[in-house]
């Protein structure tokens, strides 16, 4: 090990930023093991809150709701998103630019506008607020992300791939499903990951479009947070952060090995 002990202001700054990012998280995690309801003084180590969390039926129910909503959202966002990306990439059309702008609108506006817009819309057509309305809302703001990612991958594609398939007698649809879709694999996976997380995480749009049965985890956490500090939320948050961390480590580790493989 070579230890160069020179002073690097940028490095110190970055460590400062990381400290700022992580200090609250560490405190949060520490208090999830604290044997006191009030979150102030350290009274001893306990797993009590994890135990309580597991048996907290409303939270567990909303966790299941969240997972279900995120899965359906991912599924439909991918179908719709990949199709529209292909449309944008492959076919020229007089309204194309306008259409693209339209579908990107949710990205460019504060989420609350989409939330109230959809609330007003669902109320006007007397559509019951519930799973379906939340899923529709989620797909609407996830779609732009899918399209951006897939379009980026398509722009790097060799157009002769499709031509070759067509020359060999495939119909355009066959060519798409047999040749283009497999090529899009990595983009589809990363869109799926992003869509899933966005949907799982969303609070603002869900807040306006949810109904009695479709309470998601963020909505429930918000409600509990408003009511006061509760170590069960700390426990839940700790699990959340751990899972996020593990998934990210997995992705990074995989990316690293993939990169190495392609380097060879």
């Amino acid at each position: 090990m070579t230890l160069k002990n020179h002073f690097d202001p940028l490095k110190c700054w970055t460590w400062g930023v990381l400290l700022f990012l992580y200090f609250p998280i560490f405190v949060l995690i520490a208090y999830s093991f604290n044997d006191s309801k009030l979150n102030v003084v350290w009274k001893g180590f306990t797993f009590q809150w994890y135990h309580d969390l597991w048996r907290h039926e409303p939270l567990m129910q909303s966790a299941r709701n969240s997972l279900w909503i995120a899965s359906v959202t991912t599924f439909f966002s991918l179908i719709l998103g990949v199709g529209s990306s292909w449309f944008f990439h492959r076919y020229r059309h007089p309204f194309q630019k306008g259409l693209k702008k339209m579908i990107m609108i949710p990205l460019a506006l504060p989420e609350i506008l989409l939330g109230i817009g959809l609330l007003v819309f669902f109320a006007a057509i007397q559509f019951p607020l519930g799973f379906t309305s939340v899923i529709i809302a989620h797909i609407t703001f996830c779609l732009p992300f899918v399209i951006l990612i897939v379009l980026a991958r398509l722009s790097g594609m060799d157009p002769s791939i499709e031509e070759a398939a067509l020359d060999l007698g495939a119909t355009p649809l066959q060519a798409f499903f047999r040749v283009i879709l497999p090529y899009l694999g990595p983009a589809v996976i990363s869109s799926a990951l992003i869509t899933f997380t966005l949907s799982l995480d969303d609070f603002i749009v869900t807040y306006f479009t949810t109904g009695p049965q479709s309470q998601t985890l963020p909505i429930r956490i918000f409600g509990m947070t408003k009511v006061g500090l509760n170590p069960i939320i700390n426990a839940l948050s700790t699990i959340f952060i751990l899972v996020t961390g593990l998934i990210l480590i997995f992705i990074f580790w995989n990316k690293g090995t993939l990169n190495n493989r392609s380097d060879k």
């Binding site: 405190v27 956490i221 948050s237 990210l248 990074f252």
Partner: peptide, 26 residues
């Protein structure tokens, strides 16, 4: 670099409600 990036991304992907909640405690 990847390690640092990971460190920035973990809070990025953690629900902002949870992170706001942490500040109440602080």
């Amino acid at each position: 670099r990847n390690l640092y990036l990971l460190l920035v991304m973990i809070p990025f992907w953690t629900s902002f409600l949870i992170r706001t909640y942490a500040w109440i405690t602080l």
